[in-house]
Design a binder for these strands. Sequence first.
DNA 1: AACGTTCTTGTAAACGATTACAAAGGGAAC
DNA 2: GTTCCCTTTGTAATCGTTTACAAGAACGTT
Lengths: 339, 339
Amino acid sequence: MTKKSTLVLVAERAGVSIASVSRVLNGLPASDGVTERVREAATALGYVPSATARSLKVGKTMQIALAVADVGNPVYVAMMHEVSRVVTEAGYRLVLSSTGSDPSDQIDFLAGLNRGFADGLIMSPLRVTDELVAALQETRVPVVIIGSLPAGVEFDNVRADSAKGIGLAVKHLVKAGRERIAFINGPVDTVPGAARLAGYMRAMTKHGMPLVADMQAAASDFTYRAGLDAARELFSQSTPDAVVCANDLLAVAAMKELSTRGIRVPEQVAVIGMDDTDIAELANPSITSVDLGSVKRARAAAKLLIRRLETPDAPVEQVVIKPSLTVRESTPGAPNLTP
Amino acid sequence: MTKKSTLVLVAERAGVSIASVSRVLNGLPASDGVTERVREAATALGYVPSATARSLKVGKTMQIALAVADVGNPVYVAMMHEVSRVVTEAGYRLVLSSTGSDPSDQIDFLAGLNRGFADGLIMSPLRVTDELVAALQETRVPVVIIGSLPAGVEFDNVRADSAKGIGLAVKHLVKAGRERIAFINGPVDTVPGAARLAGYMRAMTKHGMPLVADMQAAASDFTYRAGLDAARELFSQSTPDAVVCANDLLAVAAMKELSTRGIRVPEQVAVIGMDDTDIAELANPSITSVDLGSVKRARAAAKLLIRRLETPDAPVEQVVIKPSLTVRESTPGAPNLTP
DNA sequence: AACGTTCTTGTAAACGATTACAAAGGGAAC
DNA sequence: GTTCCCTTTGTAATCGTTTACAAGAACGTT
């Protein structure tokens, strides 16, 4: 390990003042002689400026915090990855907080944010409580929210149109002639859960299909395990010819349950997932999935935050990402590779 | 957004010196009167100490950096999650760097580390070059490496015994009466790739099975896509009755290719993955996988680093995590749920 | 030669905390 | 009442930068 070395050391060795060193190293004008001596001294001493000291003085940490609810879900991983890419490119570091889905954890985290360890925050809350909103308002640094917010709450915000997304899924199934389209949702008290249920109902109604309770199940969580239970419940009470799932993990679970029951996908039951994550492609058969633009959302959120840091009083911006459908093997009318 | 407030403001309001404020807030002894007035003032002003200023003074950032090579691989996600849990509990924040697998990225990152934005680093390099080792030696903060290191390089280190892990897999297959055990590896020029190949060869020899080139394939990457190519190559040149994969993603790819060829798993070909990640369980049939203790490794690495931060000159420690086998549906002799 | 510009450079004051040190206050012991 | 000791509090230095300001140097203009 090399010794630490400070501006003072460099200044002494170069025989100039620390101000000159700072100027040279920051590219401010200086005479050739001084520039050269400082450069030489700096490299000779292996000088690296202290991030902390700089942060204290200039009031920026060059760090951006990302708070995600559920690291087990591949869609968050994909988002995280993209956020990481964008902020790194802009010269920021990424501080990750995998707060549980528990809102109180998230609130604690927000309180910590006020210590100023990051210049801004990107957050994708699963559940939005009043307390969370209040804590967000109290925050000293800019926040960008990924996901929908209660009406009247104004933050830079980027969200998916999951209702329209489900519309795409249902339309695709209707076109393929499916008539009994079921829905496996996640918890309805979450923001995406509520939105996706609403979307399902709207889409079914639009296509003149009945809304029956037997054709709907809600998993207790957006996880594979919970999805298995929900699928078991659904298929034991009704016989759909297609099932839309609020999530790719739930879709994998549905396919597993169908396989256990000896029901063939997509011939007997078509399956559609949401988020279009890696596992939709990994699954066998691969899963047709609604792409809610998670990567685009992540990218937009990161850019929004960086813009806000650069121009603090730009008007609040709300971005909506359009969904699209990635057709794979789990629905008919697709490249079906099964022999 | 609340206004920022500093020690000075609190001190003024409480009618005491900033030293007293600091002491009260840090729980150092103070008279009841002062304590109370400071408390009152602090909450009234919504005072939150500045992380940056504190860091500068005490020389600790309370941040730990984690550099992972490949965020696309679920095993790294699992590790990241566990590291996050441990460091958060110990009061540290996690700074994430998803440096590509490119060593030069990682070296840049190490150079940045010397600015002192984190108190320590956990790194799991896929490839260990001389330059990387050199850069690691130059680092001003403690580093813990997850994965094997060249002989003679001394860092706190935690690694899996993947040779023994492959041994478990082969043994399991031999017991089940399989005689033609193939191997799909990742790139051999990576640390895990090399170790796993060595383990396969050792295990095969130990069980008196021939090592034939036809029964081995190396994917260009530890990814699903690369795995598909490798599996295609393997199964077009030989007819194993079992295949060990260096990775769960590669195992999923192998199963996909087998399914495309109409070969039944596990009846005709048994499949074993490694890392025992979520997708081993999600796959259908679920995949028997060698648990290389990724979560344990992550936990051990985090604890090792925290210990090092607390006792800087403790002796270097090298932890090896024992592998185990999680038997699922992709191998016989397992709870086989297929009807 | 005196003056005004412009360019370089150094001095010193921040940023917001922690903490060594000293001073003051309050008992207890004699 | 004096001495000694312990507790409480304030003063001021410090961490390593950036940067406002001022001083000095260099140079052209008249």
